[in-house]
């Protein structure tokens, strides 16, 4: 066979997967009953019942079953993984888009006028490091709706990276490009849309990518708190049911969906990228 260097990372990846899953599978086998079970063990249902992390084979079989019918709905505590993920995605996207709607225009203004930057920077610096979940009680008290409160938490955590990146991108547009707009007598509006926006777009998109990543991290915790629906609630609920197979399966799904969100935004950023 011809030597194909492009295949090397794939081979290494597969070997790693095989070793990792293999050792996980091996380590989570129940110990062999080397002697007859004691009366106590018999009474408790045998050594098998000892709580242990389910092996990957069990998770894969479970995943296969779940994914073959992701949208079933059998009451508040038994919904398909697809439904739960859809709830989470709905909250993340709503909060994120609302944040974008506010952060990008505000970032534009802050980036264009240094005086606005100086005036607003202290607030941004204080508000930014607050854990979004710290807002939750306040949000629940004021909004009085757990659904909207979860969206608010997503909103508040996605706003900062987009605001900061937009302001930074706009403030650092090359002076020469602004001068091109000025010598062509473009109005402020047209300068903003035809020169500053495309020039700052890659930086803005980076901010959006950071925001959606954080939002997806935060939604799990937020849903564990507010309960009801969503992938975060699902994880917590299955933990309460001691169904670790479902917990591991949900963890995997959180990773996969998060990766897809990032992939979507990274393809958009490739579209607005330019080379100087």
């Amino acid at each position: 066979m011809r030597y194909r260097p492009a295949l090397r990372p794939l081979i290494i990846s597969l070997v790693f997967l095989f070793v990792a899953l293999g050792s996980w599978e091996w380590s989570s086998q129940p110990p062999k009953a080397t002697e007859a079970l004691s009366e106590y063990e018999l009474l408790m249902g045998g050594a098998e019942q000892e709580a242990r992390v389910p092996p990957p084979s069990a998770v894969i079989i479970h995943a296969f079953n779940e994914l073959s019918d992701p949208f079933y709905d059998a009451g508040p505590n038994d919904k398909g993984i697809g439904i739960q993920l859809a709830y989470s995605l709905y909250r993340v996207l709503t909060g994120f888009l609302l944040a974008a709607l506010i952060a990008i225009p505000c970032g534009f203004v802050i980036g264009m006028f240094p005086v606005m930057h100086k005036a607003m920077n202290p607030y941004v610096q204080i508000l930014k490091p607050i854990s979004p979940l710290a807002w939750m009680p306040l949000a629940l008290f004021i909004i009085k709706d757990s659904e909207a409160s979860a969206i608010f938490v997503i909103f508040i955590c996605s706003i900062w990276p987009m605001l900061i990146n937009t302001a930074f991108g706009v403030a650092n547009v090359r002076k020469d490009w602004i001068n091109v707009a000025r010598t062509h007598e473009l109005s402020d509006m047209r300068t903003a849309f035809t020169v500053i926006l495309p020039a700052a777009a890659p930086t803005i998109l980076t901010g959006m990518r950071i925001s959606i990543g954080i939002a997806w991290l935060v939604i799990v915790a937020a849903e564990m708190l507010v309960g009801g629906t969503g992938i975060g609630y699902y994880v917590w609920n299955e933990w309460n049911n001691l169904d670790l197979t479902s917990v591991i399966f949900a963890i995997m799904m959180i990773g996969i969906v998060g990766m897809m969100l990032d992939l979507i935004l990274s393809s958009v950023s490739r579209w607005v990228a330019y080379e100087e």
């Binding site: 090359r174 020469d176 490009w177 001068n179 091109v180 000025r182 010598t183 062509h184 007598e185 035809t194 020169v195 495309p198 020039a199 777009a201 607005v272 330019y274 080379e275 100087e276």
Partner: peptide, 27 residues
């Protein structure tokens, strides 16, 4: 102030890098 009556060619960077050659001129 700046005006379309006076065109400027700078040493560098006076093209908008996200636009094609033609779009830079049509701009």
């Amino acid at each position: 102030g700046p005006s379309l009556e006076r065109g400027v060619v700078f040493q560098n960077y006076s093209l908008l890098p996200w636009l094609s050659t033609l779009k830079n001129v049509t701009f």
